[in-house]
Amino acid sequence: MRKKIGLFFGTFNPVHIGHLILANHLWQYSDLDEVWLVVTPHNPLKKKSSLLNDHHRFEMVWRLCEDYPGLKPSDIEFNLPQPNYTVSTLAHLEEKYPDYEFSLIMGEDNLKSFPKWKNYEVILERYSLVVYPRYSEGFVEEVFKDHPKITRIDAPRIEISSTFIRQAIKEGKDVRPLLPQVVWQYIDEMNFYR
């Protein structure tokens, strides 16, 4: 039987307890054998200026995953041509790991914008989507309502944003409760986001 891998993409700038709770929940309560936290070098839809260096964000994710055997850090996109698109990453992973079955993990909010993704039809044809709930406005397109490749997981809704954490650190606030201890230690020792 093929190993089922859920791909949780993000800039993880920084990775926080919301990411950890969600990734662990998906590993524990879905049919996924592992959840890979894929650190994206640069989302084509985001400004790059506020991003920490790729290897620092990967280091934080790596430290976070150390205590969770079902969670794996991935820097697979670091060596792919930029800007990179999910469809290319999936093709690359399939080539590199032919015995694995990959699923894409995304929030309901991303499912709404999914038709804007490059080659989204190809993704949906070849891969499953695991969708977790988010507090967001509007409705997901009807076409995705009962799609056989889309599984909805009733995961906890944790509304913490990396943007909020970065701003809070800049303002000198104590954000330790929002970050896994190993991540906070790294941010603190490296003096990030100040």
Rank of each mutant, 00 (worst) to 15 (best):
E159W: 10
E141V: 07
E142M: 11
Q181R: 12
I5N: 02
D31Q: 12
V15S: 09
L20D: 04
V87M: 13
N79P: 09
R2F: 15
N110P: 12
D109Q: 04
A155Q: 00
P177H: 07
P14K: 02
P14C: 14
I105W: 04
R166V: 07
N53G: 14
P98M: 08
G172M: 15
I150N: 04
P83S: 07
S161P: 04
Y100N: 14
P73W: 12
R152D: 09
L178T: 03
V35T: 01
G172W: 08
P81A: 00
H55G: 10
H92N: 15
Q28P: 09
N84E: 08
L104C: 13
I17W: 10
Y85T: 01
I187V: 08
K46G: 08
F114S: 01
G107Q: 06
F9Q: 05
P14A: 12
Y85A: 10
I160A: 08
M106C: 07
I21F: 12
R157P: 00
S103F: 08
F164R: 12
Q185G: 05
F139T: 15
F8H: 02
H19T: 13
L52V: 14
P69G: 05
F8Q: 00
M106S: 01
P83C: 03
P148S: 05
L64R: 06
V183L: 04
G138W: 14
K3A: 01
K96D: 04
N84Q: 12
I5H: 12
R166Q: 03
D31W: 07
V175E: 00
N53H: 11
G10N: 11
E34P: 08
Y186K: 01
S113E: 14
N43I: 06
D33N: 10
K46R: 11
E121I: 06
K170W: 05
A168D: 09
H42F: 04
T11L: 05
L32H: 04
T89I: 03
N79F: 13
V35A: 11
V140F: 09
A168K: 06
I187H: 07
N191P: 06
V183D: 09
E94I: 06
V39I: 11
M1Q: 05
Y186L: 12
L90R: 11
E34L: 13
L20R: 03
S128I: 02
E125C: 10
D188G: 10
I158S: 03
R176H: 05
P41Q: 08
